[in-house]
């Protein structure tokens, strides 16, 4: 799986970070990226309303992540890291012939969006995307939250964060 680009949206749906990791991608204008982010935010929310109601809360019925109570119980009993993606009914992923798009949402409303190369073996790529989101979330917490010059919900302009994201993309 090759990472093409990463978008980070704040809880209002505004774009706070965008990085084209593949240098061969065409660059859009800054405005285009903002519009794209806003559209994704809207589509994600609309999808939440359109999704058929999930019957019961068994872990087999959801696509991304497990039932929250079971997740937390497992977390407390084992002390091991779990998956914190709260994206249950919103737009989870888009798969096309040219690219795949994955959405991860945290409890605080931050959305991470990955655009990757297409891959016919879907389940494996889902897991890989999941792992990548986890590392990305840790990087966000380390280099953005702990940056004393960063104002919450504002665009991220940290060079260190760019560097670390580049390293993560190279590892994938």
């Amino acid at each position: 799986m090759k990472l093409y680009s990463i978008y980070i949206l704040n809880k209002a749906g505004g774009l706070i970070y965008q990085n084209n990791l593949d240098p061969s991608l065409n660059r859009l204008t800054a405005n285009d990226y903002l519009v794209l982010a806003g559209t994704l935010h809207g589509v994600h929310a609309i999808a939440a309303k359109l999704t058929p109601t999930i019957v019961g809360k068994d872990s087999t019925s959801t696509t991304s992540g497990t039932d929250p109570t079971a997740n937390n119980a497992l977390l407390l009993s084992t002390g091991k890291v779990q998956n914190s993606n709260t994206n249950k009914t919103g737009l989870g992923s888009i798969e096309t012939d040219l690219f795949n798009l994955y959405v991860f949402q945290s409890l605080t409303g931050i959305k991470f969006i990955l655009i990757t190369s297409p891959n016919p073996i879907l389940q494996k790529q889902h897991e890989q995307a999941s792992e990548t989101f986890r590392h990305l979330y840790v990087l966000y917490s380390d280099y953005v939250m702990k940056d004393p010059f960063y104002s919450l919900d504002m665009p991220i302009k940290s060079q260190l964060f760019d560097l670390k994201v580049g390293e993560l993309a190279a590892l994938v």
Binding site: N72, N83, T86, L107, T108
Partner: peptide, 13 residues
């Protein structure tokens, strides 16, 4: 809170 969520993977209670 972001540090906590990213390191533990806790879900909504």
């Amino acid at each position: 809170i972001e540090e906590f969520l990213s390191r533990t993977g806790a879900q909504r209670c």
